[in-house]
Amino acid sequence: MNKSYITAYYTDDDDLLKGIRQLKEKGVEIIDVMTPFPVHGLDKAIGLRRSRLSRVAFWGGTIGALIGFFFQAWVFTKAYPLNFGGKPYLSVPSFMPVAFEMAVLFAAFSIVFAYLIYFKLTPGAKPVIHDERSTDDRFLVVVKAGEPGESASIEKALSEAGAEGIKLKA
């Protein structure tokens, strides 16, 4: 398996989008694109699936709400029933605020942790940074170099698609 790859960059997001479409047409295999900000429509051009993170949030929230509600119910009906202002032990309206807050807390944390863990975004992680300006104003494309003989044609395809700074890396 050949692990070498080619990096190249664009300086404008519209050019990037056009270039990506051209590269896709030519069958160049795009490994990744690094951009300084989320480029509108790029995820579709690359062919990313819609995120399923909203399901994580939904289930996180549901679990949080259930824990929040039933814990209170358990405390006031089983663990230590106390009379507060003549209200029933299972006073549903006054359990709502805490249940709601727990739902939000669980949903928010589950989705953020799902995101961070999926991308291995942890304190002190050491990523491969191909070009330090890709968090500033360069839109970096990383493509597969293919077999040793093919890389020249891919480089040509890249420059035809308007990319600059084409570099072959192993």
Binding site: D32, V33, M34, T35, P36, F37, P38, V39, L42, D43, I46, L48, S51, L53, S54, A57, A107, A108, I111, V112, Y115, L116, Y118, F119, K120, L121, T122, P123, G124, A125, K126, P127, V128, I129, S134, T135
Partner: peptide, 21 residues
């Protein structure tokens, strides 16, 4: 910065997370 690279998938999901949050 947690090892941020700004790859397209990171960004796409980042937007989703922001929106849901």
């Amino acid at each position: 910065s947690f090892g941020w690279t700004g790859s397209v998938k990171q960004w796409s999901r980042h937007e989703t997370v922001s929106l849901i949050l």
